[in-house]
Write a protein that binds this DNA or RNA. Sequence first.
DNA 1: TATGAATGAGGTTTCATTCAT
DNA 2: TATGAATGAAACCTCATTCAT
Lengths: 192, 192, 192, 192
Amino acid sequence: MASERREHLVRLAAELFAQKGFQATTVRNIADEAGILSGSLYHHFDSKESIVDEILSGFFDEIMASYRAAIDRGQGPRETIAALVRAAFDTLEPHRAAITVMQNDWSYLRGMERFAYLTKAEDEIEEMWAGTIRQGQRQGLFRADIDATLTYRMVRDTIWMAVRWYRPGSGLDPKTLAEHYLKVMFDGINIH
Amino acid sequence: MASERREHLVRLAAELFAQKGFQATTVRNIADEAGILSGSLYHHFDSKESIVDEILSGFFDEIMASYRAAIDRGQGPRETIAALVRAAFDTLEPHRAAITVMQNDWSYLRGMERFAYLTKAEDEIEEMWAGTIRQGQRQGLFRADIDATLTYRMVRDTIWMAVRWYRPGSGLDPKTLAEHYLKVMFDGINIH
Amino acid sequence: MASERREHLVRLAAELFAQKGFQATTVRNIADEAGILSGSLYHHFDSKESIVDEILSGFFDEIMASYRAAIDRGQGPRETIAALVRAAFDTLEPHRAAITVMQNDWSYLRGMERFAYLTKAEDEIEEMWAGTIRQGQRQGLFRADIDATLTYRMVRDTIWMAVRWYRPGSGLDPKTLAEHYLKVMFDGINIH
Amino acid sequence: MASERREHLVRLAAELFAQKGFQATTVRNIADEAGILSGSLYHHFDSKESIVDEILSGFFDEIMASYRAAIDRGQGPRETIAALVRAAFDTLEPHRAAITVMQNDWSYLRGMERFAYLTKAEDEIEEMWAGTIRQGQRQGLFRADIDATLTYRMVRDTIWMAVRWYRPGSGLDPKTLAEHYLKVMFDGINIH
DNA sequence: TATGAATGAGGTTTCATTCAT
DNA sequence: TATGAATGAAACCTCATTCAT
């Protein structure tokens, strides 16, 4: 089913989508990169959309699994939040292309029936994070005067947007980024 | 130069670009919205690009001016950062469409010679913010163990991405958002 | 009727048509050159075609008159041919733009009902020249083994095509060109 | 590279360009003639310009080769000039369409960066012809009181412009034309 | 699996022309 | 006479997709 050839093509496509955007990448671009003719791609996929679908669903499946594992570990809210942040940053390298597409072509994909599952997954994720934050508030660990959902969105956007400037092998690795973000998120930049 | 008719058309276009994305919005969409034929738009603009250019440069001019004013006020780093955050959030409503385009079509626009000025402006802005943070670190106001640039990017992404979910008239106004973000940014979510 | 303003506009248009070709010159180009808006041209002319018509008919009127005068002078064939050649070259400077348009846009204009008069004038002109050559042949002045019509066309094309490379003020003036062409035409390049 | 289908399309296009002019011929005209949709042409060519490029460069390659062969045969100037004239007339039938385009759309094509090679080729050709004429003058075969370059241009224009009126199968064939032109060129129309 | 040719819909842009002011 | 806005037709070109071979 998922032949090697096919997986290779998906990876090529993901790279192009990430570089130029989904809409701006033509089926011919992908075929050129693979050294075949554009029509030949249709032996592997039934549409351009189905390629991006494969890219995104692969990423979402993995991140959801990681998040669930972090939640299910049943640690305290502080540890759980840290685990979620770290899980997210851990995908930055292996799924860089998928995340880039998700961020850059979000407005296009959001409008499509086919990708409704993305919105659904996002809602579920939001509930995991915000729920954990609220739990921390109830337990007196986190300040009561912040909005859990708002705070989640702050963190989420800040993490995923990192793909727009993060370059592997530039001194900063995702683990370092995660710790930096946790520091600021938990304690702020002020010296008290 | 900027006739009323023209400004009206720019506003219509901005709204459509924000809703559907720059690429997915056709010149015909804009013309339809304006009740004219697509060719007639070319009486006012010489290309679709020049429309988005007008939208974005208008926004950038304003935000740069606000930022410079905040810096020039010569307050302490803490107050200056707060002023920058508030200045950014203050554009959220009047420039919602422009910000949305900037965020959503970033990957497309980035690749174009014509919009090189955006990158240049971003660099200048980064220097304003990061410089202020570093000043605060030197004055012993901000923690020395955070990275100024990284921190700026966190804040920047979190602010602009708000356009993807912020809806005017939903209880939350930009001022409230700004204060919330300042709280988290300065002091973190932990209770100490 | 032929106000100065109008004549000025015709001259501007002629220059542009000569430089870029009739089709490639837009009504806007002409208006820009005149410092008015394209729509305003329509107070002076009822179409782009009527402008080029004015340019070409002006030229044809003059060349026909010159040719007829040369013929009517009733000199011998040799002198008449020389007069025709000189008459043609004499238009090279004052009507350079018109001749250029006639040569360059010939294929386009030929196809238009409106410019049928050009073909008619050409036929009449061909008859003048070829008739004179034939007269010279009958009088034993010109060789009998050349084709009068063919010879006329040689000369005609050679004269008008000069506009493609002739530049006023480059040392060569039309009078010199005429004499050169007469030399070759009458006696050939061989030394006998 | 040059598939049969492609060559067929080029021939169709050349015919249309010759009939109506390059600018006046639409891509749809060509496609209609070929019985396909206009967009389908872009499977074979990347632009309308690239079609005319193929037409013209094919012609120029051949004429340059013929000219070089004539020069390289190393005969006397009189024979070489005759060979050049005959070589040119020999292209009149097989390359009628290309020559027509070259003549009629010269002013349009000249302005384009892409066709700069045409001007370059013309310069090289001018040097071949004018050089041969000058050689004949030095050897006392051709009159010293004529200008070599001017004479070349006379001949050149007269030859290529023949496509505007020459019709195959009208009694006159290119060989006859060549001999006629040689007669006039070498010895003039006078009887001495 | 791949090619080569084509489709069909639609995209941006151009441009001569019109007309109320 | 000129402006400013618009029309309407058509131009070149793009591109996801199909399909016989």
